[in-house]
């Protein structure tokens, strides 16, 4: 390669000379050196310290998923309870209105309220939420036991 370089350098000089002498074409001083550096700056990749992108950290993903799940369930439960209570109130109000209009007292507002189950279902929802954290094996075991008991 070393010999090649020398020959190549000679050829470069010859090339510059022939283009200058025969065609009158010239290049600015140090052009090829500067051009080489410009090209290298554009193409050759510089070594950069390796960084792990944020989205690749599993722990962050896990924490974000847990937080989202927790917030989601809390908010859903709250609004679900509010909606159910609202429906119950509307029902009792409507019935009371009908009672007043008809003058009937067959079903009092208090009695009706007693008949309506407590649909805030806080306890049941707690069960549903907690069931999310039950191991699948335990669920299977529970189902098996139920089946065996039924038999």
């Amino acid at each position: 390669m070393e010999t090649n370089d020398k020959i190549n350098q000679m050829n470069d000089d010859e090339l510059n000379k022939i283009h200058s002498d025969s065609l009158g074409l010239n290049v600015p001083e140090n052009y090829f050196f500067e051009s080489k550096n410009r090209i290298l700056n554009k193409v050759v990749t510089k070594e950069e310290p390796k960084t792990i992108p944020f989205y690749r950290k599993k722990t962050i993903w896990f924490a974000a998923a847990t937080l989202t799940l927790f917030l989601g369930l809390t908010v859903c439960n709250k609004y679900a309870a509010l909606d159910e209570q609202k429906i119950a109130d509307q029902l009792t109000d409507s019935i009371a209105q009908i009672d007043n209009e008809n003058g009937a007292t067959a079903v009092s507002k208090n009695n009706f309220n007693n008949q309506i189950p407590n649909i805030s279902l806080t306890a049941e929802n707690d069960i549903l939420v907690s069931s999310l954290f039950v191991e699948e094996k335990e669920v299977d075991q529970y189902i098996t036991n139920c089946i065996l008991e039924d038999m």
Partner: peptide, 13 residues
């Protein structure tokens, strides 16, 4: 870099 040394001048002309 070697490639540039070898062929830059020729290709330029």
């Amino acid at each position: 870099k070697k490639l540039l040394d070898l062929y830059q001048v020729r290709l330029y002309w």
